[in-house]
Simulated scan of single mutants.
Amino acid sequence: MASVNMADVKRLRELTAAGMMDCKKALEESEGDFDKAVDLLRLKGAKDVGKRETRTASNGLVAVKHEGDSLAALLELNCETDFVAKGERFQQLAADIVAHILATKPSDVPTLLESDLNGKTVKEHLDEANAALGEKIEIRRFSVLEGGFITSYMHKTDPQLPPAVGVLIQLDQENSAVGKDIAQHAAAMAPKYLSPAEVPADVVEKERSLFEQMTREEGKPEAAIAKIADGRLNGWFKDFTLLEQTFVKDNKKTVAKVAAEAGVKVLAFTRFKVGQA
């Protein structure tokens, strides 16, 4: 079996994003033939696709695509390592898929996976990337907002990596400055819901029950428990609903007040952070 030098191994890894040992073995098996080594890695990748189903894809990126001021899509595409996330092929795949989402507006991830993108299903494109890059590649979630005025903010947690946090903000009318401010706020403060009215009833009841239990265990009078729990629930709304949160740029105002003073209304938002619920 031919010996290989580390420079060739490194070059092969940079080209294919395969693991160092896999690159070394491919070069050895191909007796130093670089093109043949690339083919061997692709073949190995295709065979290993099924084996990766149980592996965790907790890295990746968030990608955005706008069409005018009133339509935008946000996508979280996952992989296993930062190395693949910062690669050109992975980022191009994300760009192609988020553009496809914007054009077709699929109802959910399964529908997206079965849809046609340039003569192949999106799932087939993922499988090809999976084979070529040697990692589990998957679409975790996506969102499409349409109507009004939509702005976005993309945040890099590491300057060497693609954006890991993405936010879409939908306003009822154009205001780029306020839209950007609220998008940046949402990126930093991670609200879960737009307003208290939009929190699902089962979530509200779960939180209220928890607060009642906490209050009871603190020894508070039974007659006061409901009122105290409601107060704590209102505090929870201020922490986890966008409009009730204290605005990061002015702690004397809520996000709702900032929007109202600017003469706009926040209709909806989406916030994705790679690997986060």
Rank of each mutant, 00 (worst) to 15 (best):
V203I: 13
A17G: 01
D172Q: 03
M214L: 09
F142I: 09
D108W: 13
A95M: 13
M214G: 01
E29M: 14
E212N: 10
K206E: 15
S70Q: 03
H185R: 07
A63I: 00
S209E: 15
A277R: 06
K86S: 11
F272K: 00
E29C: 06
S209W: 04
D39H: 09
G231L: 09
C79Q: 08
T151K: 02
E29F: 12
K192P: 05
S70I: 02
E212S: 08
E198K: 14
D230T: 03
A99C: 07
V264M: 10
S176M: 06
A85L: 05
Q92W: 07
L77C: 11
V264C: 04
D35M: 02
I137W: 03
M1G: 15
L126N: 09
P221T: 14
L71K: 15
T104H: 14
E28P: 02
D172C: 06
A259Y: 10
K47Y: 12
I228F: 10
V274G: 00
M20T: 11
G219S: 02
A188M: 14
D181C: 02
F237W: 11
F90G: 09
L77V: 12
A2S: 14
T56C: 05
Q184K: 13
K249P: 01
K123R: 08
L113Q: 15
Q213K: 15
T81P: 12
V165M: 09
A224C: 02
K65H: 10
P106G: 07
F247R: 04
E31Y: 10
G87I: 12
A132W: 01
V178G: 04
E76T: 12
G68L: 04
P196C: 11
R216V: 03
E80M: 13
G19F: 06
A187L: 07
G87M: 09
H155D: 02
N118S: 14
N234P: 00
S176R: 06
E28N: 07
A260C: 04
L210P: 03
D8H: 09
E114H: 15
I150D: 03
L112R: 15
A85S: 15
T16Y: 04
H185M: 01
E124W: 05
V9L: 10
E218R: 11
G50R: 08
E244S: 06
